[in-house]
């Protein structure tokens, strides 16, 4: 068996008394796309940040390319990070810089490319995410979906082996959601990268995924191929797939749905 590119082993993480991840195990093979589903606040971002080494796990470890992240020195950690592109939930573009400077940032710092080569690479990256011709704009002039795509371009500039997407489609309209889903698929095919994508959007999840994991109350309760995931008998999985409020998913279930006949002051009945 090959060594997985990203291996999350028995990872637990708590903030004070609040346990966010408990005993999470995940592994991603080279070239594979893993989609992580999960409700809001279940620790999906915390998981990605732990993989990037921005947070240290309380227990367990994460290895990337066979190196255990939290045992590396600063220098070694930065070397590993050059092989990982992280796309933040809110894009996290440098707002004092133009789009061009954002995408060129790591090229300028970590390579010896000439400015003509950098220009070429930045245009190539912006082209891959469908954002050509925006290079002189500031992040404040972009819409949410455009910011995310510039964030993608910045993440792929150094040709990473791994791409991590944190809720790339949340808060976007359905059309833009589809655009982003397509960009991710394109990147996956054109660059042949290994990806971990966090999303709530089931449609793009099933398009992107080689395997789907569901994070529920800090634990991975399912991790399997999309076809198997669809028919997983677990009640939580089925509730998430239906998008229904009733079921074991929520700790404090909402009040039962009103039936139409009990609504006495419906404006439609006047």
């Amino acid at each position: 068996m090959t060594v997985p590119l990203i291996d999350v082993v028995n990872v637990s993480k708590a903030f004070g008394p609040k346990v966010v991840l408990s005993d999470v195990n995940l592994s991603v093979e080279e070239g594979e796309s893993l989609v992580v589903l999960g409700g809001s606040g279940t620790g999906k971002t915390v998981l990605l940040r732990t993989i990037m080494g921005l947070l240290t796990p309380d227990q367990g470890h994460i290895s990337v390319e066979g190196k255990i992240i939290h045992q590396l020195s600063w220098q070694e950690l930065f070397e590993v990070r050059k092989h990982i592109g992280m796309c933040f939930q809110m894009a996290a573009l440098f707002d004092s810089m133009t789009v061009f400077e954002n995408v060129a940032f790591s090229l300028r710092r970590h390579t010896t490319m000439t400015s003509a080569e950098i220009q070429f690479r930045v245009e190539e990256c912006l082209g891959l995410v469908g954002m050509k011709g925006t290079d002189q704009l500031k992040p404040a002039e972009l819409s949410g979906g455009m910011k995310r795509r510039v964030g993608f371009a910045r993440a792929i500039a150094l040709k990473p082996k791994i791409l991590l997407f944190d809720e790339p489609t949340t808060g976007l309209d359905p059309v833009m959601t589809d655009v982003i889903g397509r960009v991710i698929l394109d990147l996956k095919h054109e660059l042949g990268v290994t990806t971990i994508t966090i999303t709530h959007d089931l449609k793009s999840a099933f398009e992107i995924a080689d395997r789907i994991a569901l994070l529920f109350r800090g634990e991975v309760i399912a991790c399997e191929k999309p076809e198997a995931f669809k028919v997983n008998p677990n009640a939580v999985v089925q509730q998430f797939l239906r998008g229904d409020a009733d079921g074991p998913f929520l700790l404090d279930p909402p009040p039962p749905k009103r039936s139409q006949s009990t609504v006495s002051h419906s404006p439609l009945n006047v």
Partner: peptide, 9 residues
């Protein structure tokens, strides 16, 4: 955090 992820201290 983005700086850190771009391997910049």
């Amino acid at each position: 955090d983005a700086l850190e992820c771009l391997a910049t201290d």
